[in-house]
């Protein structure tokens, strides 16, 4: 117990004295995570909306693929991206392996289906009658779509939050394609693994505390964003 308490205390001091290594790791984590989130949302939200609205022949198959993507083991995604980007792989010429680009790529592949799936469900959950009503009130196609999306905004925010949570907590894939290189691809999660392996528990506790704080702050932000919408439902 003493050990843990001591670790926590040292972790606090590392954080509040803005220890250089810790700050670098946090900065990189945020940069990679936010980039991955933006790209995942850019891919996932339109995909989810499209699947919710469009009727086409192989729609059920497409949704099945989407669900598979949502539940797919992230570490396997990491493995596949690694094999693609490795020197001996087809995309080896890109030089992306062991750079933040590879990490963002893997995380987008992991998180985009999650965002798409939740978005799709949120949009589908909007009362069908509202679509009819919006048209009847004179909305053109774009306006109808925007109105439906507005109605689904609570669910869509949750979709993005779920994606961000996934991205922030990813370890295996990011370790495999990023390499945990100090100063360039070392992020909070991989650093936690490294410091734990090295027995530097106060550092890994510091990493853990920062991760928890980031997750909490993001959730808080989301509740604020949902704000009025949460009350109305």
């Amino acid at each position: 117990m003493n050990d843990i308490w001591q670790g926590v205390q040292e972790a606090f001091s590392l954080i509040f004295t803005a220890d250089g290594e810790v700050m670098r790791i946090v900065a990189l984590s945020l940069a990679v995570s936010v980039s991955a989130l933006v790209l995942s949302a850019a891919v996932g939200i339109p995909l989810g909306i499209w699947l919710a609205f469009r009727r086409f022949a192989s729609r059920r198959l497409a949704i099945a693929f989407l669900y598979t993507g949502m539940g797919f083991p992230p570490v396997v995604v990491g493995l596949v991206v690694f094999l693609l980007l490795s020197r001996s792989g087809p995309l080896g010429w890109s030089g992306w392996l062991y750079t933040p680009k590879a990490m963002v790529l893997a995380q987008v592949i992991i998180a985009a289906p999650i965002i798409a799936g939740f978005t799709m469900v949120a949009v589908m959950a909007v009362n069908r009658n509202l679509r009819r009503q919006a048209r009847s009130l004179g909305a053109n196609n774009l306006q109808v779509t925007m109105t439906m999306l507005q109605e689904a905004r609570v669910g869509m925010l949750v979709a993005v939050l779920a994606g961000f949570g996934r991205i922030l907590s990813e370890v295996g894939a990011v370790m495999i394609v990023g390499g945990n290189l100090k100063g360039s691809t070392q992020v909070l999660t991989t650093a936690t693994v490294q410091f734990t392996r090295m027995g530097l528990f106060e550092r890994s506790i510091a990493m853990g505390m920062i991760l928890l704080t980031l997750t909490f702050l993001t959730s808080l932000l989301w509740v604020l964003l949902q704000g009025g919408a949460l009350q109305e439902s």
Partner: peptide
């Protein structure tokens, strides 16, 4: 100079 923080294999 790159530092991986990992095992020999990696």
């Amino acid at each position: 100079y790159r530092s991986t923080g990992q095992g020999m294999g990696s």
